[in-house]
Design a protein around this nucleic acid. Structure first.
Lengths: 231, 231
DNA sequence: TGTACATCAGTGAACGCGCGTTCACTGATGTAC
DNA sequence: TGTACATCAGTGAACGCGCGTTCACTGATGTAC
């Protein structure tokens, strides 16, 4: 339970290591549930979700395999919970980064840096999500696809505030937003591949990420949504 | 061996189902090897590589588990062979599509359509590669990364022939090429997600893919490689 | 061409192991009176 | 406040199963003479 508790504070889910006084049955249950999530995430640091066994996760969480079923009906259900845990706060952070900055440049810089900080704090979560995104036909991949669509919709909404984009058809706006989300996911994968603690690598990756986004947005004023494109 | 043979003809590796006359020992060995690759690919249609067992593959290929080791030292080695099988011909096809067309528009259209045709013929191969790309720290993911870098280098080379790109620094060129390769991979994933035989869906996905690439390339003439970007 | 030996792809039994899931249980927490 | 009963998170034994890998083997193909 020790290091599992530490991991959970990173997400600020259950802040205190061992709170004072007696604890209700449902509080204890919630803590064991979190231990299972934390244990799974640690094991997923260098493995695929499909290769993870219920017994391993239970063992690492400090419970007997059969007690797992008190919290999740299957490993798949736990995986979906991990996906939700990953995106829970990031969506709000990114929306904030965009609304608190005006102009492409500021928005790009703030978004990239917000993403960077968040990914570095929750590396295991993002490793899990980038790995499982296309991992197969299971509930986990489906949950990830849903979350990404939400990121994309958030972004499309904010992009629509820019003058040349204001008049774009919705589908073109979503195309652009998807392109940006995909590029950002590539950046996440690069960050997770970099040697740990390699600050220079991080800065290079962030610079490249900003450059990529500028390249994409550079074409926007020249795009003709209706009629023949000029290329 | 029956349907395994059929799958292999799709790749044109061993064309005849049962050639006439006696067959040398090494020919037979090569055929069994191909059966193993085909069997693995069929099983991978809706599963992750990590969840695939040596025994399953051997069984489907029609040999006893222990005979597997006559062909590959491990499942991982088989996985790497599958990656090579996937990209073997596509690289040349895409290079051809670009050199036989001039101008962004023609190149984009030809590339997207070439990719589409190839993906549709070899769906299982591409499902495997898109799934395993980020699947973990194994040899398979590493092999995929190497292949993608080669696609990107090919593309950068061809992009350098365009006038505004001719003078770009190499790193910016590679950034642009990576962006395009990533976008194309997204298109592959969309194609594989579409309902089989849904021609309308295919056409929509291809149209979107072309649009995305045009969006990206639209910014090119306005990019300032040196000095401050205008955004 | 015929014979004797070497090679080696594929066989089949056996091993110890971790897997998911079942089941009846325990004992602390919660609730009704 | 005290007692009797209900709830339910966690236990531990047991099951049948598929796994990767070992080993000694078989018998067709290949080679040397």
């Amino acid at each position: 339970m020790g290091h599992a508790g530490i991991a959970s504070t990173l997400l600020d889910v259950s802040a205190a290591e061992e709170p004072p006084g007696p604890v209700s049955r449902q509080e204890r249950k919630q803590r064991t549930r979190q231990s299972l999530l934390d244990a799974a995430l640690e094991l997923l640091a260098d493995r695929s979700f499909a290769s993870l066994s219920l017994r391993e996760v239970a063992k690492r969480a400090g419970i007997v395999p059969t007690a797992f079923y008190r919290h999740f009906t299957s490993m798949e259900e736990l995986g979906v919970a991990l996906v939700e845990e990953t995106t829970r706060t990031l969506r709000g952070l990114l929306r904030g980064a965009r609304t608190e900055n005006s102009g492409y440049g500021g928005m790009i810089r703030a978004s990239v840096h917000t993403l960077h900080k968040h990914v570095r704090v929750h590396e295991d979560h993002f490793r899990f999500v980038t790995r499982e995104r296309y991992a197969g036909p299971g509930a986990v991949s489906r949950a990830i696809a849903v979350e990404l669509r939400m990121f994309s919709s958030d972004l499309a909404l904010d992009l629509a505030r820019f003058d040349p984009l204001r008049t774009w058809p919705t589908e073109d706006l979503h195309l652009l937003a998807d392109l940006i989300v995909t590029a950002m996911l590539g950046t996440v994968a690069e960050l997770l591949d970099a040697r740990p603690g390699d600050t220079a690598a991080d800065e290079r990756i962030l610079a490249e990420a900003e450059k990529r986004l500028r390249m994409v947005l550079l074409g926007v004023p020249h795009w003709r949504p209706e009629g023949q494109p000029r290329i």
